[in-house]
Design a protein around this nucleic acid. Structure first.
Lengths: 210, 210
DNA sequence: GTCTATAACGTGATAGAC
DNA sequence: GTCTATCACGTTATAGAC
């Protein structure tokens, strides 16, 4: 038994083992590409147990999807409505949060977005993104930043897309880069760490450009 | 019969109808999520005919995947090795090409990248991206541009990721934006048209930043 | 070339013993 | 709670008539 943060580290419960296995496989292969047998094997348990705990593949998938989306959005919500930080700081935190999250779980973006493609309303409708995004203090700060510079106004959404695009896209395109550019896992991660500093700088210069 | 570019417009052959249907469905649902029955129905033919022409689902999929990737890369290859255009012009063309392509076929990026996630080597190995990218004149021009400014050197790959990220990511995230931000299809497309001019400007300011 | 009918197989889910 | 064995169904692929 190993000690960790003062708690005894027990073996994960069967339910937990199944969920962990499901997360791994679903993230990698998507709903349609996943067989419940694979999840059971990955979890080291029997197929019947999966249905015993989670009733059906769909139920289990829904659970994983919800947790995944929540985790992904948390990196945003944590930052977007801080009242006492500058825009620059928010961008730094946002980029840093996502690069850390995606370095550890690189499959999340494709997983979410490719499943979203099938049932756009199902998942998204629960998230109230519009109020969350357009009503956020972050959004307001962006508009102010552009007004100060007296530059041609562009929709703040453009900058959101840029930040997320520059941050998230490399992880989405990672299979291309690693499989092709004879880029090793470590090299890729090193590049991503560099981007924690680079992206905020670029965003700053873009905001000045308009 | 309608005339078009001097050619008589005939009905597409059965083979062509099946391929068109397959492209539509595969792009939308991926390999695992697609049923050959759906392709047959979309093509308005019988299921048996699909196997008569293409032997198997896998064969048909491989064909569609190859054509799709080629079409996607063509927008790059067309631009990357032009010797007589400036870096700025190349970026403009690249961005414009992709925004036009993706406006018409918005599912292509998720399709390619989510299928790539399953068999990275299969598809990618045939493309020799490394030589193509790192050896391109475009790549060289980027390095020169940075040297001129005497700024801290960053790997040119960062800028490639930025350009593709800013250009492609919005289409990948489109389901989120449209389903949530009560963003209409037309509004989205209008934003993308704006980006044809904006992205090259931003890239320019980024290159000056380093 | 195109169809209907059906074979062959894989997968999700359950029954029932322990 | 956990397992083995099996059912029930959907899907790919093919046989064979036209």
């Amino acid at each position: 038994m190993k000690e960790k943060t003062g708690k005894v580290e027990t073996d994960p419960s069967t339910e937990e083992k199944i969920k962990n296995a499901a997360r791994t496989i679903f993230h990698k292969k998507g709903f349609a590409g996943t067989r419940t047998r694979d999840i059971a094997e990955e979890a080291g348990i029997n197929l019947a147990l999966l249905n015993y705990y989670f009733r059906s593949k769909e139920k289990l998938f829904g659970l994983i999807m919800m947790e995944t989306v929540q985790g992904f959005l948390k990196s945003m919500t944590d930052v977007f409505n801080q009242k006492d930080t500058t825009l620059e700081t928010k961008v730094e935190h946002l980029v840093s949060n996502y690069i850390d999250l995606l370095t550890e779980h690189p499959n999340i973006p494709i997983f979410i977005l490719s499943e979203l493609r099938n049932n756009p309303e199902e998942v998204v409708s629960k998230m109230k993104m519009k109020e969350f995004l357009m009503g956020s203090y972050f959004f307001q700060q962006m508009q102010e930043a552009m007004q100060e510079k007296r530059i041609a106004q562009v929709h703040p959404l453009h900058f959101i897309m840029n930040i997320l695009g520059m941050t998230v896209f490399p992880f989405i395109a990672k299979p291309m880069l690693t499989a092709v550019g004879d880029m090793q896992e470590e090299n890729f991660n090193a590049l991503m760490q560099q981007r924690k500093k680079l992206i905020p700088q670029w965003v700053k210069s873009m905001l000045a450009t308009g």
